[in-house]
Design a binder for these strands. Structure first.
Lengths: 153, 153
DNA sequence: CGTAATAGTACTAAAATTGTACTGTATAAT
DNA sequence: ATTATACAGTACAATTTTAGTACTATTACG
């Protein structure tokens, strides 16, 4: 129904692997997460740019979380990797949508986007990693219209 | 930060143009919405399949909403056009993610997905079209991290 | 000075999205 | 019946986005 890019998913995994707080090299992050080294490097660079991780260059350098996992949320991660792109094209500034003049629903998506953003903001990296999820409701395992929830495997 | 496909956006516009309740041909919908006829036809077919619109074939045929705009919600529309695809690849069933074994965050996205789905479910087509949005908060027009909300143009 | 690590940039390959064309089928008016 | 209109289904082509790679530069430690 809605998607985040795979790289964003990877970014979350990478951040989770940095939860210990110690300095870790990109190569070791790759080993821990089983994601390729080039991809890990690329993502860590972006996360550093966004201020979510701190980097130390030179020999024995590496990366570490810039702030505690509890104060990094899902919206931060998505913003860092996918940029401040909103639900619809017309929201991104360089709109060449073509039907703007007659469109009736553009403003409606704004409300939805707001609600989604709040949901993303309310889940921290710490909670994201914690295995005992607070509100995993079993009756949602398969909804009436066939939508499947997010369980790896 | 997160995106719906342009076709989903179009679908919403098309459904909005059908709010009158009368039978409207695909060609006229195209004219009203300024979306190309082939695209409109394709989308109306999918919406019919999903049960959101009713179709009448033959001369003087056309499309109309299958139920009142108040009882169609954003999640319905997204499901109809994008299918029951969830936030991450591992959720879609045919997972070949490669890092499943060591991944720590897959289940976390489930909670987020749940929250997002609820947000989408809570906005009806009727509300989506209504111009006087209930909770348009002006202080969100530009958030601290540069994200821009959804206003066409 | 050499090694180990990040920083930056540019490029290539693959996949999904988007839009189009064509053929078939049903209905109403003449 | 025939014809015109409009939906149904399928397949395809172009574009765009995403994902991953390679290479060079810079920084720091020993």
């Amino acid at each position: 129904m809605l998607r985040i890019s795979r790289l964003t998913d990877y970014a979350t995994v990478i951040l989770a692997s940095l939860g210990g707080g110690t300095l870790v090299s990109a190569a070791e992050v790759a080993e821990r997460t089983h994601i390729g080294v080039p991809t890990v490097s690329k993502l860590l660079k972006e996360l550093q740019h966004a201020g979510l991780v701190r980097s130390v260059r030179g020999a024995h350098g590496g990366y570490q979380l810039a702030r505690p996992a509890a104060s990094i949320n899902a919206a931060d991660i998505i913003d860092a990797v996918e940029g401040p792109i909103a639900l619809t094209e017309c929201a991104s500034g360089n709109s060449n949508c073509g039907i703007e003049a007659t469109c009736q629903v553009g403003h409606g998506w704004q409300r939805i986007s707001h609600a989604i953003r709040r949901a993303l903001h309310d889940v921290s990296l710490e909670e994201l990693v914690r295995r005992d999820a607070p509100f995993t409701t079993p009756d949602l395992q398969r909804s009436p219209n066939g939508w499947r929830p997010l369980v790896r495997g």
